[in-house]
């Protein structure tokens, strides 16, 4: 699942080539660029807003309700359209599992 060794100049990690988000290894200011590796190629994108260390950034366009993929697996669904370079977090994605609030009689 994980790569064994990471390169020192990489500022974010994409866990699987199927992912549509990267995890930031340094906090970014709006307009700051970051480097990631996808399919063995180094790519550069620009952050649309300031994003803290360890948080996720979109590396692809993600439509509302589309699955968000990290580790090559589904981690949730988008609750808004997300552009490449946007912060991906609780404000624009939600979990799919353990959603008693969406069950009949749930506390919405």
């Amino acid at each position: 699942m994980s790569k064994s060794v990471y390169e020192q100049d990489i500022t974010s990690i994409v866990m699987s080539d199927n992912d549509n988000v990267a995890t930031l290894l340094k906090g970014l200011e709006a307009g700051e660029s970051f480097l990631y590796v996808l399919n063995g190629q180094k790519e550069v994108l620009t952050a649309k807003q300031s994003i803290p260390f360890g948080h996720k950034i979109s590396i692809k366009s993600i439509q509302r309700s589309e699955m968000v993929v990290k580790y090559g697996e589904v981690i949730g669904a988008a609750t808004a359209d997300i552009e490449p370079g946007e912060h991906v977090h609780v404000h624009n994605i939600e979990g799919i599992r353990g959603r008693g609030d969406k069950a009949e009689g749930g506390q919405k």
Binding site: T23, L24, P52, F53, G54, H55, K56, V68, K70, Y71, E73, V74, I75, G76, V88, H89, V90, I93, E94, G95, I96, R97, G98
Partner: peptide
């Protein structure tokens, strides 16, 4: 969540 985990699924896969 402050540490960057957005959903339970994401936490679980890690």
């Amino acid at each position: 969540i402050r540490g960057g985990l957005s959903t339970l699924e994401e936490k679980s896969l890690g």
